[in-house]
């Protein structure tokens, strides 16, 4: 079986978010790009499964929809241990577009297990995994926090309200994974960093798709107001502030 891990190229989580003057585009100046943290955990688990599956998993591929400036992030995934990579040479406009393009990669190369992080840390849409399974007509499991392969049997764990759920899954399927799928993202070692340059990074042109979304404007959230400390005895002042200043009661 082959695993495809979908990788998003996202700004470092400590990035100070800015927009252009018209507030129609994210300002990428000086931004450091990373693998989306949930995707990095997904890749780590995929590699662990390959290493412990006694040959059941034959390869782990990563796929990204992105322009050439996303390649350093893809090469980091190769350094971490992915066997090869595919970059769909397009601007990732929205979740529908990304899912559609990744679906074409899956259809072409045939992956039995497709893993997506539950969301990306830039737009937090949480939509690609579900859309991708629809495009592919694969079954999908959401909120996966554990995945194991024993022979040909695939078992996944899900966090549900008030407990955990364990499911046996038949390939092919899409797993939408969340925190817990791996303990920590794997750190690339020197050998991996050197070998990343020699691994295949295929660039494919995007399939023709309708654009369903356009961005009108961006806005930053309002700055956090200063915290007012009120004495525990002064309930009257608290009620007054909540009513007249915060206007929440």
């Amino acid at each position: 079986m082959k695993i495809l891990v979908c990788i998003s190229n996202v700004p470092d989580t400590t990035t100070k978010i800015k927009f252009n003057n018209e507030k129609t585009e994210f300002d990428k100046t000086g931004v450091q790009w990373i693998i989306n943290p949930w995707d990095e955990l997904a890749l780590t688990r995929a590699l662990e499964l390959k290493e412990t599956s006694n040959g059941v998993i034959t390869a782990v591929t990563v796929a990204t929809v992105g322009l050439i400036d996303s390649e350093p992030t893809i090469r980091k995934a190769l350094a971490i241990g992915a066997d090869n990579a595919v970059r769909v040479n397009a601007n990732p406009k929205d979740a529908y577009y990304v899912a559609g393009q990744i679906a074409e990669v899956v259809k072409k190369d045939g992956y039995e297990i497709v893993i997506c992080g539950i969301e990306s840390s830039d737009y937090n849409g949480s939509a690609v995994g579900g859309m991708l399974s629809e495009f592919l007509e694969y079954s999908s499991v959401s909120s996966v926090s554990g995945m194991n392969i024993d022979g040909g049997n695939i078992v996944v764990n899900r966090e549900i309200d008030g407990g955990k759920e364990t499911l046996a899954v038949k390939a092919p399927f899409v797993a939408v994974v969340q925190k817990g799928i791996a303990i920590n993202p794997r750190i690339p070692n020197m050998r991996g960093i050197m070998m990343a340059k020699t691994k295949s990074l295929a660039v494919v042109e995007p399939a023709a798709m309708d654009e369903l979304t356009s961005y009108e404007t961006y806005e930053l959230p309002a700055a956090k107001a200063a915290c007012k400390m009120i004495s525990a005895e002064n309930v009257k002042e608290l009620i007054d502030l909540l009513h007249n200043e915060a206007k929440v009661i």
């Binding site: 090469r75 350094a79 920590n184 993202p185 750190i187 690339p188 020197m190 960093i193 050197m194 340059k197």
Partner: peptide
């Protein structure tokens, strides 16, 4: 270079984590 940045990040990740 890309490799130098990757090594810097790897060392940072291990140290900080």
């Amino acid at each position: 270079t890309e490799e130098q940045i990757m090594i810097q990040q790897a060392a940072r990740d291990y140290a900080q984590r």
